[in-house]
Design a protein around this nucleic acid. Structure first.
Lengths: 243, 243
DNA sequence: ACCTGAACACCGTTCAAGT
DNA sequence: ACCTGAACACCGTTCAAGT
């Protein structure tokens, strides 16, 4: 830690944290494919082989980056209003995705490669916290698990949707979009072409996320009313703050 | 088929279709990272450089593979019951995902790299068809677009969820899962550890998808009832065939 | 004009050789 | 015992040299 009294400059002692933060920076700034052992080593002023002390693999490096972002998500269970808590976590997740768009493919995709119990611990913590939250709200554990899956699927689906709307150069959007649409045969794509204006208008991601959450929470409530209700105060699911 | 009267064996004339089908097979059988220009060339008995006639890029190859799968999805608009149609398309999409799990990362991820109007045409066709379907059902075009996004996000979220549950070796699942769960500190992960049985029990993907669709369609109906309704017959959104 | 394949500038990872 | 870096077996893509 003391970095060595007269250690070479720009060569702080490595650590897993330091390596992963450098990896995240590389991904944020230059995209996923810029994250190679060799470039990361160079970024840190080390022999690329040194990195294998902190990640057994390039795959482990990717997992680590995803974990670094996901671990910032906190779902606290010690709150009276669990629905509001889910809503806040959802918007927090959305902000993380917008802040690290290049990491989103990792977040949604890496779990496909690893059985749940073997995933990086930082990605399991939000799951545990959400289970705790829902169980504290009165849901039986198995039902809490199901609800967690719906919620998580919703979040993944949403950010994938929203990030598709982001265009690198908003200046060129108009021309680019029209160019692209003009490429489509009019007789086969009348509807899509007709929606050019709406597509250009873009997408209010926060509002769309709230709408999806409304659906989920309202749907839950509907189910509760005709089935054994999961305790906790009965409360409208509609969000308090709409735009 | 005829393979050329006396063409060299194993060297049928190339075409974009043939190249992409070979690429898909490679991905299905050996995973995404097995799809390289060189291995694909070898698979086809050609110089890898020959492939550049049919795909300008490895990225274009990836897009082509995703398109090949997605283009199998058909949303026909000429049916009386549009909700049932959405439901069928959703299950069709699920089946495609299960049939080509290695392609799913491409399907959910590649659109992030390309503006909508410039995507492979085969991936835009389902969008156009769904817009047609919803507009025929009475939705204003812009609303149809929003609904499409929710629906699409739901599908992506669902298959990502479901594919996480697939375990390569179901024989070893039990041991592996317990091993993994035991790795987690009990005091920090009591809920997750307590759900071991439920996690082992697996996941009824078709049922979960239907539940999500119920939520979406019921939620839609709820909105309609308090806003200008989108024409078309009023009908319960609950699915006809449940398990 | 078209096609081929040598060459370039990279990769991840292993492992022998050094200390 | 630890670390280093040479070496291996790959990559995608360019482009000059052939036809």
């Amino acid at each position: 830690m003391t970095d060595g009294p007269e250690g070479a400059p720009r060569r702080p002692r490595l650590s897993r944290e330091l390596v992963l933060h450098a990896a995240l920076r590389l991904v944020d700034e230059q995209g996923l494919e810029a994250l190679t052992m060799r470039r990361l080593g160079q970024e840190l002023g080390r022999d690329p082989m040194a990195l294998y002390r902190y990640a057994t693999n390039r795959a482990a490096l990717l997992d680590g980056v995803a974990e670094l972002v996901l671990a910032q998500l906190v779902i606290s269970a010690d709150t009276p209003d669990w629905q509001e808590q889910l809503r806040r976590a959802a918007h927090q997740f959305r902000q993380l995705a917008l802040a690290h768009p290049n990491v989103v493919p990792l977040i949604v995709t890496r779990p496909l490669a690893t059985p749940l119990a073997l995933r990086p611990i930082g990605t399991l913590r939000p799951l545990e916290q959400m289970l705790e939250l829902l169980i504290a709200a009165g849901y039986p554990p198995v039902r809490a698990l199901h609800l967690y899956r719906s919620y998580w699927g919703l979040l993944h689906g949403h950010v994938l949707n929203e990030l598709q709307e982001v265009v690198v150069d908003p200046e060129a959007t108009d021309a680019l979009l029209r160019l692209g649409l003009d490429r489509l045969p009019p007789e086969e794509f009348p509807r899509l072409r007709g929606l050019a204006k709406a597509l250009l208008a873009g997408y209010d991601g926060a509002a769309a996320l709230d709408e999806s959450l409304d659906l989920l929470l309202n749907g839950l409530q509907a189910v509760e009313q005709q089935a054994p209700a999961p305790g906790s105060r009965r409360r409208r699911a509609a969000p308090p703050a709409r735009r």
